[in-house]
Design a protein around this nucleic acid. Sequence first.
DNA 1: AGGCGGTTAGGGGTTAACCCCTAAGCCGCG
DNA 2: CGCGGCTTAGGGGTTAACCCCTAACCGCCT
Lengths: 212, 212
Amino acid sequence: MSGMTSGGTGDEPIVYIVDDDDAMRHSLEWLLTPLGLAVRSFASADAFLAEHDPGRTACLVTDVRMPGMSGLELHEELVRRGAVLPVIVISGHGDVPMAVRAMRTGALDFIEKPLNNQLLIERIQQALRLAHTRREETRETDAIRARLAALTAREREVAQLVAAGKQNKAIAHVLGISLKTVEIHRHNAMEKMAATTGADLARMLTLVGGVG
Amino acid sequence: MSGMTSGGTGDEPIVYIVDDDDAMRHSLEWLLTPLGLAVRSFASADAFLAEHDPGRTACLVTDVRMPGMSGLELHEELVRRGAVLPVIVISGHGDVPMAVRAMRTGALDFIEKPLNNQLLIERIQQALRLAHTRREETRETDAIRARLAALTAREREVAQLVAAGKQNKAIAHVLGISLKTVEIHRHNAMEKMAATTGADLARMLTLVGGVG
DNA sequence: AGGCGGTTAGGGGTTAACCCCTAAGCCGCG
DNA sequence: CGCGGCTTAGGGGTTAACCCCTAACCGCCT
């Protein structure tokens, strides 16, 4: 469930900025762009949610206090949506409970204004590295999921039983079909999944959560 | 690397309290004990580090400001030591950076004084549930590690190659020994590891990080 | 010196996995 | 209606895995 949105090759990392304050957005753009970072900024959480590309290697820098949806609510909404992009929350009038809430939601950091530019840049670079790592980690599982989706229903059933270490005979008994048929499905599944051995198949399915 | 300390059966969860303020410690004891919770309190981080049982299902409630090692330093030291117990940090004079630091270190929560007893109890119960879950998760891997340690060097080598999906013939070639010998080691390894199939073995070794 | 655990190796047989080929019934789509 | 994809199934052969038994060599400890 990641990385299969917006097929473009746009793989350079991007920094999303969400802040209702025009001056702050521009100031951040002026700070980050010279570093060779791609920046895309939004004046509201809704604008960000509507227009950003969830499939991209990116991080988000969001202010807390904004008209409409707050930065914290935006963060929580992203988590609800299963987003994986690292989030840095900034705030002009933050307090401890607010910071704790942001961190519990999974923010990489909660930074108070006035911003320490050096610290912010460091965090953003850390966030992008993290985004890249997560992307790498999901790359293989995405490929596996894609191949898994190409299996027929029967092949998937057989594949799961194979991955569980059952032998063909047992699988045939469980599914109420012939040993020969199991061998066919097993072979097709292994081929479609590009698995060399049964252990390979098992590894792939557990990576994807095929056991449940 | 967990749960193999202090062999006692003491499996009822315990709440560790670290605070230099006698009144606060006693107040927490009086709050928690009536709930049926085992409580053990310490007046300093050093005392806690010296006397607590790292193998136990437990959580830690620690104040930040204390003579000697602070609560944050204690938390960081525990993380360095690979501890897995959930930590709740409480503070009378906390600020945002302090809260962020605690949360980044992995605290479950950072709570300001005066304490909201109901909230604290809730968090402690959540922490103990989490500790229990983590313990369950490490229980199997601990058992696997123990069985793995009972293998001879040769058996471990063979087991890893088996788990990698290699067939006996290939393993024999790699190790420069006879197919027969591989079969013996394989059989012994499977028996000692209580694995029914090669896939089982693979699962165990990856759980323990046997591939890395 | 004898015993014990680890490593090595073979004989011989059974079962399971894998490979190639054929083939039939079913269902949807052009 | 025929074609293709999915599922079903068998024949027949090769290879690999698994099981039981014997047996040698080495190092270490009693």
